[in-house]
Simulated scan of single mutants.
Amino acid sequence: MSNQKESGAPDPFLVWERPEPKKRPAPAPLSRDRIVRAAITLADAEGLAAVSLRKVAALLGSSPMRLYGYIDTKEELLDLMLDAAYGEMIAEGPFQGAWQDCLRTMAQRTREAVHRHAWLTELLSGRPLQGPNAMTYSEAALAALSDQPGFEDIAVTLQTLKTVTAYVVGALQDEASEHHAVQVSGMTKEEWQLATYPYLERMLATGRFPNIARIVKEVEHPSPAEEFERGLQIILDGVAARMNS
């Protein structure tokens, strides 16, 4: 390990702590924040697959090579975009109320952020939350629960947050999958459902899927927002039951 790391100095390997290049006269002044904001604008308009350093540079009126002074790879750019989304959630204020209220607020903020930035569902899992905004958000969530009765054990608090987060990410990905199918088809949601229903009827008529058939016939299909809230309530009820056992 280098002396730099032993001394506690910032590790230049991490994009969060790497100094930006010195400012110099240029037709289009750059900063890491401007680059990230441009990437978010691009992703909002065209999807995450459209984000590249070349396209972001073009949006900023710059060259891709200039961006490399601020960001080494596209993966770093995606990490910064994710952290910026957490920054938006932090800006909405502290988590307040009973533990159920705090967890519901966290869940709803994430869902609202995904509705602002559809690409966020692709980044919410599989990436460590090491950015300053993500860590601030995690610290605020842990603090909001740690002050509540039943959450004196930090391990219980952490596991509760992980459980709720797993539900939220999974529910949002499920919600996005149907939206993606409709979007790719070029139809409205109603047109897509009408076009695919004959296939579903043929599959159910085989008798191989009796429980799916029951769902189609018996289950009321609420709005995505209602379905999200129902699932979240099941998770919160489970946490409450564990605390009262």
Rank of each mutant, 00 (worst) to 15 (best):
V36M: 09
L204H: 04
W119H: 11
Y167K: 03
Q4D: 14
K23A: 15
S245A: 13
A171H: 03
N133D: 13
E226V: 07
S52G: 10
V56L: 12
I90P: 07
K74F: 02
L103Q: 01
A181E: 14
G93Q: 09
A225I: 04
A181M: 15
L236G: 01
T157P: 05
A166W: 07
G170H: 08
W16A: 01
L59E: 15
G207Y: 11
A57V: 11
A98V: 10
E178C: 07
G131T: 02
I35W: 07
D174T: 11
A118I: 03
A26F: 05
E6H: 08
T136L: 13
Q183V: 00
R34L: 15
Y167F: 15
G231C: 01
Q4G: 10
K74D: 05
L142K: 00
P222R: 06
T160I: 03
G87T: 12
L129R: 03
Q100H: 03
M65T: 06
Q148T: 05
E76F: 01
G238K: 06
P128C: 02
A39G: 07
L142Q: 03
T121K: 07
I35G: 07
G170Y: 04
Q173M: 12
T196I: 09
K162G: 05
Q4V: 14
F95I: 00
L48N: 05
G47R: 04
K22Q: 08
S185A: 11
L82P: 10
R208K: 14
G87N: 13
A113K: 05
M106C: 11
T165W: 08
E76K: 03
W99E: 01
A107Q: 03
F228D: 03
G126C: 12
I234N: 02
E226T: 08
A143K: 08
P19K: 10
A39H: 04
T136Y: 03
P222L: 09
L172T: 06
E226D: 14
I35K: 06
M89L: 12
T121L: 04
P19F: 09
A213D: 10
L194E: 08
D153R: 08
L236P: 01
D153Q: 05
D237S: 04
E6S: 13
E92T: 15
A49T: 02
L172P: 09
K74P: 06
G97C: 13
T136W: 05
T41A: 15
I40F: 12
V164G: 06
V15N: 01
A113Q: 13
A155C: 00
E190P: 02
G207F: 10
